[in-house]
C-alpha cells in the first residue's frame, strides 16, 4: 500500500521534536498535525478548563487551537519554541472566545467564580479529605479565586510544566519577570487559601 502521508514510524512518533513536526505540517504534510494533537491536546484542555472552568468550552477551544495551527501553519518558525507558539495561539483563542461570549451575554466573572466555589463545596469528592496537610477542596477554591493573570502563570508553570523561557515568550516578558510573577502568584494563592481556611473555621 502506498502511503499518502509521510510514513509514521514508532521512532518518529516518540523522538521527533515538536518544532520539526510542526515544520512538516507547515510544509504541507498536514496529517502530521495528528502527532502534535496526540501529544498536546490533554494539556491544552487542562489549561482551558483551569482558565474558564467550563469543560464544553474548553473542548471547543482545543479544537480551535488545532484549527488555527492549520490555518497559520506556514507562519510557524521552526527556530521558535513550539510550546510557546501553541500557547500563544491558545491564549488568543481564549481571549477571542471570551470577547465573543461577552458580546452575546454579560457575564459576571465574580459570580461565576463564586458559583464554581459553591459547586465544589456542595459536592465533596475524595479530595475533600485533608491530605498532606492541605485541604484540596479549599485549594481548588483558592485557585478559582486567584486573579486570572496569576492563575494563568501558575497553570502554565505548574500544570503545563513549561520552562520559564517559554512562558516569557508566551506572555511577552523577560524570564526574570516570569520568576517574580510565579512567586507572587503562589503567594497570592497561599493568602487566599488561608483566608478560606479562616472562613471555614469561623
Amino acid at each position: 500500500m502506498s502511503r499518502v502521508f509521510s510514513y509514521v514510524t514508532v521512532s518518529t512518533l516518540v523522538n521527533t521534536r515538536d518544532n520539526v513536526v510542526m515544520a512538516e505540517v507547515g510544509a504541507g504534510q498536514v496529517a502530521r498535525l495528528a502527532v502534535l494533537f496526540e501529544r498536546h491536546h490533554r494539556a491544552l484542555f487542562r489549561y482551558f478548563v483551569s482558565m474558564n472552568g467550563n469543560r464544553e468550552v474548553a473542548e471547543d477551544l482545543v479544537q480551535e487551537v488545532f484549527f488555527r495551527m492549520l490555518r497559520y501553519r506556514t507562519s510557524y518558525d521552526p527556530a521558535q519554541s513550539f510550546t510557546a507558539w501553541m500557547y500563544q495561539i491558545a491564549r488568543n483563542a481564549g481571549v477571542d472566545q471570551v470577547r465573543k461570549r461577552g458580546s452575546a451575554q454579560v457575564v459576571d466573572i465574580d459570580s461565576f467564580v463564586d458559583r464554581r466555589a459553591e459547586l465544589v463545596s456542595a459536592s465533596p469528592g475524595p479530595e475533600e479529605s485533608v491530605s498532606r496537610g492541605q485541604d484540596l477542596a479549599l485549594l481548588r477554591r483558592a485557585m478559582d479565586r486567584l486573579p486570572e493573570d496569576k492563575r494563568e502563570i501558575l497553570v502554565l508553570s505548574r500544570f503545563q510544566g513549561m520552562k520559564h523561557e517559554d512562558i516569557a515568550e508566551v506572555l511577552g516578558c523577560e524570564v526574570g519577570t516570569v520568576k517574580v510573577r510565579v512567586y507572587r502568584a503562589i503567594r497570592a494563592l497561599e493568602q487566599i487559601y488561608f483566608a478560606l481556611e479562616k472562613e471555614k473555621a469561623s
Binding site: 491536546h41 490533554r42 484542555f45 487542562r46 478548563v49 483551569s50 469543560r55 474548553a58 473542548e59 482545543v62 469528592g125 479530595e127 491530605s131 498532606r132 496537610g133 492541605q134 484540596l136 485549594l139 481548588r140 485557585m143 501558575l154 505548574r158 500544570f159 512567586y183 503562589i186 503567594r187 494563592l189 497561599e190 487559601y193
Partner: peptide, 16 residues
C-alpha cells in the same frame, strides 16, 4: 510555598 506548590499536584486532573 514549596509545600503548597507540590500540593497543587494533588488537585484532580481534568480529562477531555
Amino acid at each position: 510555598i514549596g509545600a503548597l506548590w507540590q500540593s497543587l499536584d494533588l488537585l484532580p486532573v481534568e480529562e477531555p
